[in-house]
Computed example of a mutant assay.
Amino acid sequence: MPAKPSTPPDQPAETPHYHGHRERLRERFHAAGPEALSDYELLEMALFPALPRRDTKPLAKALLNKFGSFAEVIHAPIARLREVDGIGEASINQIKLLAAAAHRVAKGEIKRKVALSSWNDVIDYCRTGLAFGDKEQFRLLFLDKRNQLIADEIQQTGTVDHTPVYPREVIKRALELSATALILVHNHPSGDPTPSQADIHMTKAIIQIATPLGISVHDHIIVGKNGHASLKGMRLI
Rank of each mutant, 00 (worst) to 15 (best):
P5G: 06
D10W: 15
V170H: 09
V170S: 07
E27Q: 14
A106F: 01
A115C: 03
A102V: 12
H162L: 11
S91N: 01
D161N: 14
A181Q: 09
V114R: 10
P52V: 07
I154M: 03
P193N: 04
Q94G: 08
I183S: 03
L42N: 02
P49K: 09
V165D: 09
A174Q: 07
P212Y: 06
S196A: 10
K232C: 02
H21Y: 15
I123T: 00
F48Q: 08
V170N: 03
R80Y: 10
E44P: 07
L59V: 00
A46L: 14
E14L: 13
E136C: 05
Y125W: 15
E14H: 13
S117V: 13
H201T: 15
G68R: 07
L116V: 06
G108H: 03
A46T: 10
E35R: 13
T159R: 11
V217D: 04
K135H: 09
K145P: 01
A100C: 01
R127T: 00
I209D: 09
S91L: 03
L64Q: 07
I110G: 01
H17L: 15
T211E: 14
D199S: 05
G233L: 04
H17W: 14
E44H: 09
L97W: 12
G133S: 12
Y18P: 04
L231A: 01
F67N: 02
L116R: 01
G133M: 08
R112Y: 00
R127A: 02
H162V: 08
F67Q: 06
L25Q: 07
E176N: 11
K107S: 11
L140Q: 02
A181H: 03
F132V: 02
P9V: 07
E169T: 12
F29T: 05
I110K: 01
H186G: 04
I209Q: 10
P52W: 07
P8T: 01
I150E: 04
D39Y: 08
L184R: 05
K172A: 14
L42R: 12
H103F: 13
I74Q: 04
L81P: 00
Y125K: 01
Q11F: 14
V170M: 08
G133E: 10
T7A: 09
L64K: 05
F138D: 03
A229P: 00
T203M: 11
N147F: 08
S6T: 14
L149Y: 02
H21R: 15
S6V: 15
A101N: 12
Q94E: 14
A210T: 08
L81M: 00
T7E: 10
V114P: 01
A101M: 12
G33C: 03
V165E: 09
E72A: 15
H21W: 13
V105I: 09
V122W: 06
I110R: 04
K57S: 14
G68W: 01
Q197E: 14
I206A: 04
S117A: 12
A31F: 04
V105G: 05
P164A: 12
A13M: 12
T7K: 13
L37R: 00
I206M: 00
A210H: 04
K4A: 14
K113T: 13
